[in-house]
Each structure stands twice: as C-alpha cells, then as structure tokens.
C-alpha cells in the first residue's frame, strides 16, 4: 500500500511540476497596474513634445522664401529637403520666415515673403482648428514604429494640433493682426509632390469674392510674432 501511494505521489508531483512551470500567477492588482502603465496618454505625450522636444529642432527650420523657390522650380530638390512618413507623395517641412500680411480670411493670414509684397505665397493657418500631421511629421521627432498601434500615433497629431490652436493661434488673435503689418513665423507644412504642377505658390489660382485668389502654401504656425 505504502509503495503504491509513494508511486502516485511521485507521478502527481512530476505532473504538478510540469503544469506549475507553464502557468504564471499574478495578483489582479498587479495586472491592473501593468495595464495602467501601458495605457497611452496622447495629451501628455504631446505636451512633452511641445515643451521639451520641439523647441530644440525649430532652429533647423528652413528659410520659407528659399523653400517656396524650390517648390516652384525644382520639386525633386524640394522633396529631398523634406521629411516623408513611410511611403508617400506628401512631404513635411519646418520653415521660418518674415513677410507682409496681404489679407486675412477665416482660413488664416495671407502672407508675402517674396517680392512683390502684395502677392502672398503662404497662408498661416489661424482658423478655429488645425488638421493634418504637419507639426508631428516635420519635426522628425516622432517614430511611428515606437507605438504598438497607429491609433496612438494619430492621437499625437490631434493633441499637438489642439496645442497649436490654444497656445499659438488664440493668443495671437488678441494682438489684432492687420493687413500691411510684418509678421515673423516658424511653422510646419505638408506639401504634395504635384502641388505646383499647374500653378506655383504665389501664382493666381482664380478669382475670389474679395479679389484674386492665389495658390498658397498652408503653414501651421508654431511661433508667431508681429513686428
């Protein structure tokens, strides 16, 4: 009897060892803590990006006048000067410049950075919302492969754009921009490879109710200063 019991104990022990080594026990609270740590806070990420990481790359912004010249005359060179997310015909740029405010509409400030001063090439987007990925992608600071899913990556743009509206655009409206004034800016733009195939930036693109309509480079402002 004793030997049979011993036999069963040894076999059961071996099975228990096998099962036990293939199963991990953790407390529910420990699991919940791990899940909380993994939850991604896009607003916090965007905040850190804006406060601590973006300022360091703004000095690499390219001159707006030179860049527009490339877009209008040598798009291949312009593409080389931009940043590209994955496989795309759209490229992102950080740019800076100074120009004259030619006109203002709900989309933003129409600014001339090149002669003649009454012909704008850029619209600084100062509307009620910003869409797209210009700031995120032009900065070169956010790696899509660092995120387990692209929803997190997309939320970053959404949160950065909110900061642009709340901290760049809205305060700027209080300074009362006026036609004819000089404005200095740093911003980000997304430009498609065929953007200037038919009309260059600054070229006439038809007629609006308020006057001639121009083909404008859309720039999301990161810094704005009236002079």
């Amino acid at each position: 009897m004793k030997r049979r019991h011993l036999f069963y104990i040894v076999v059961l022990g071996a099975l228990a060892l096998l099962v036990g080594s293939s199963v991990e026990f953790r407390s529910l609270e420990q699991k919940r803590a791990e899940d909380r740590a993994q939850r991604f806070d896009a607003a916090q990420y965007a905040r850190d990006f804006w406060d601590n990481r973006l300022p360091g790359v703004l000095e690499t912004a390219q001159d707006a006048e030179e860049l527009i010249g490339l877009f209008n005359t040598d798009m291949k060179a312009a593409i080389r000067a931009g940043r590209t997310l994955g496989h795309s015909r759209v490229h992102a740029y950080l740019l800076k410049g100074e120009g004259t405010i030619v006109s203002v509409d709900e989309g933003g400030l129409h600014v001339s950075v090149m002669a003649p001063e009454d012909c704008p090439e850029i619209v600084l987007c100062t509307g009620v919302y910003i869409s797209g990925n210009a700031v995120r992608d032009a900065s070169g600071l956010v790696d899509v492969s660092a995120f387990s899913d692209t929803m997190k990556f997309n939320k970053i743009s959404f949160e950065i754009n909110k900061i642009v509206v709340e901290e760049v655009i809205e305060p700027f409206h209080d300074t009362g921009p006026q036609v004819g004034r000089t404005i200095a800016f740093v911003g980000a733009a997304e430009v498609a490879e065929d953007a200037t195939e038919e009309v260059p930036f600054g070229g006439r693109a038809g007629q609006a109710a308020s006057g001639p309509a121009y083909h404008l480079l859309k720039v999301v402002p990161v810094r704005l200063a009236l002079e």
Partner: peptide, 9 residues
C-alpha cells in the same frame, strides 16, 4: 521598420 504607413490619396 516595424510600421510603414502608405499614404492614402
């Protein structure tokens, strides 16, 4: 690269 986005037009 772990993720390669391909643009949608």
């Amino acid at each position: 690269p772990q993720k390669v986005p391909v643009a949608v037009e």
